[in-house]
Amino acid sequence: MQRVALVGAGGMGATHAASYGKIQNAKLVAVMDIRPDAAADLAAHYNAKSFSDAQKMFDEVEFDIIDICTPTPWHIDYVKIGAAAGKHVCCEKPFGRTLEQCREAIEACEKAGVTLFIAHVLRWFPEFKKAKELIDFGAIGSPAVVRTTRGGGFPHGWNNWFANFEWSGGAVLDLVIHDFDWLLWTFGPAERVFAKGLYNSGIPEKDYALITIRFRSGVIAHVEATFATPGGFKVSLEVAGDKGVINFDNTDAAPLVIGKWQTESSGPGVPVPSSPMSVSPYYLELQHFVDCIEEGRKPAVTPQEAMDAVALALAAIESIKTGAPVRL
């Protein structure tokens, strides 16, 4: 049984907590957030203790895993504190705000002999798993051009931290890091990146970027990152190879639509499409991590891979700033 202490009781913290609630060999024992109410609310759901001070949590609670769901710039602090205390570490993506932070985190965990797992959950999303399986199987032959889309409106979090590009890295680092990891996992190392975007443009609550990646294999990928478009969260993937093409669009793949007549209390009667699964990708991801800890295995996402995804995102941001392609 792995005892988990969660840091950060925001949206992703709640998602992780819900997954631990379903994992047989794990138990959420503590929730820490600098906002005492947020920590207490989430902890109460799972019979866990709540804290607003990390040191107090380490002093008062025995646990095996620290799960970090804070805003990006604070990942590194909690990785270090956790590793120093001999805890295994699960850290939300993106791994770090800088490569230096990623390196420090890897070193701290290696030195402490603890497992470090970066939660690149896309690898457990069934559509992205299926796409990689089909590609690896040779269903579309040798891949040539890849197009991905991800995003919707501007996210809102603690202190509007997503709008602080020095903290969040905008849509390029925070959002399409998912696609970067999947692309690197599927198509191998990247050679160079060229990107255009609104990064820190000063347009309030808008970020949008179009990123072109050339892989060493010759594959060309085009990534759309949007915190600027209405109409709900959209995800699409298309891979064209020399023997075929696969494409997927979440707006088409909704087996369930719930539509209600508008009433005064319900607000506008917009039908809401959804794609329910018997198990959530977050559950599968965290179950994998917990099993790896229990069985002494290495998790499927290595810290180096997570750092490579950050490197690609930071290179894209550099390209947006300089107007030139950036070699990796």
Partner: peptide
């Protein structure tokens, strides 16, 4: 204009796959 161009669909002497970025 910035462009990444390849011939990875047909593997011949003509281009068949690309992404162009226009400013």
């Amino acid at each position: 204009v910035y462009a990444e161009i390849s011939n990875r669909i047909n593997h011949k002497d003509f281009d068949d796959a690309a992404t162009l970025t226009l400013t």
